[in-house]
């Protein structure tokens, strides 16, 4: 564990707490893509089921339980409790365009051709693109509530911090994980446009609005 990874994980944790806070206080999931949230459930379940056969640390297990539990809870809030505030007509990204390529990639690129490792690779690839329905929705509506942008920023910062973590681990531990690094760089890259607007507008007190 190093500082980059710890801060990254805390940022990930914070993003979910911000999202829950937004839904609970506004009693609405407006502006949140159900598809992205459903993809995160798939990501966490596919990757963190190793809870049952691989013990790393209490920290690691607790985080895994939290991520699976909170993502399922968010789906429940969107699907049932605040269902009327969820507008599927603007959440139109076709997720099969993500699921199928990720499934194929995970069959080609994995560290061992066995179900658990293929699932792990699949979750890494899927996580890297799971935000696309959300970003697509943002693009369509052209604006977002400040709190939604804080959620996205925390999520993007989590991924960005994993990059110095890998560089640090390469030099201190001599380990490199090409699958995670490649997917992680792609994932961080997807946030660049968003970060630009977030840091130049939202953090300056302006509304998150995309140029027409």
């Amino acid at each position: 564990m190093n500082l980059f990874r710890l801060l990254g994980d805390l940022s990930h944790l914070a993003s979910i707490l911000v999202l829950l806070h937004k839904i609970q206080t506004s009693r609405s999931c407006r502006g949140i893509s159900f598809k992205t949230q459903a993809l995160y459930v798939a990501v966490f379940v596919a990757r963190y089921l190793d809870l049952f056969w691989r013990y790393i640390s209490l920290y690691n297990s607790a985080m895994k339980v939290f991520f699976i539990g909170s993502s399922c809870y968010i789906l429940y809030l969107m699907k049932y409790r605040y269902r009327p505030t969820n507008d599927p007509s603007i959440d139109t990204f076709r997720i099969e365009y993500l699921l199928v390529p990720c499934a194929i990639l995970s069959l080609i690129f994995n560290y061992n051709f066995m179900p658990t490792e293929i699932l792990w690779s699949f979750s890494i690839f899927l996580e890297s693109v799971a935000i696309l329905p959300q970003l697509f929705m943002l693009q369509r509506t052209g604006e977002a509530e400040a709190i939604t942008t804080h959620y996205l920023a925390a999520l993007g910062i989590y991924r960005a911090l994993y990059i110095p973590n890998w560089i640090y681990r390469y030099f201190t531990e001599g380990v490199i994980d090409p699958i995670a690094v490649t997917a992680g760089i792609v994932q961080t890259g997807l946030y660049l446009d968003f970060f630009y607007v977030y840091f130049t507008k939202v953090l300056q007190g302006q509304k998150f609005e995309l140029p027409a």
Partner: peptide, 10 residues
């Protein structure tokens, strides 16, 4: 270093 999976990461 040889490629290895960082299954210790979240």
């Amino acid at each position: 270093p040889p490629p290895s999976s960082s299954h210790d990461e979240l």
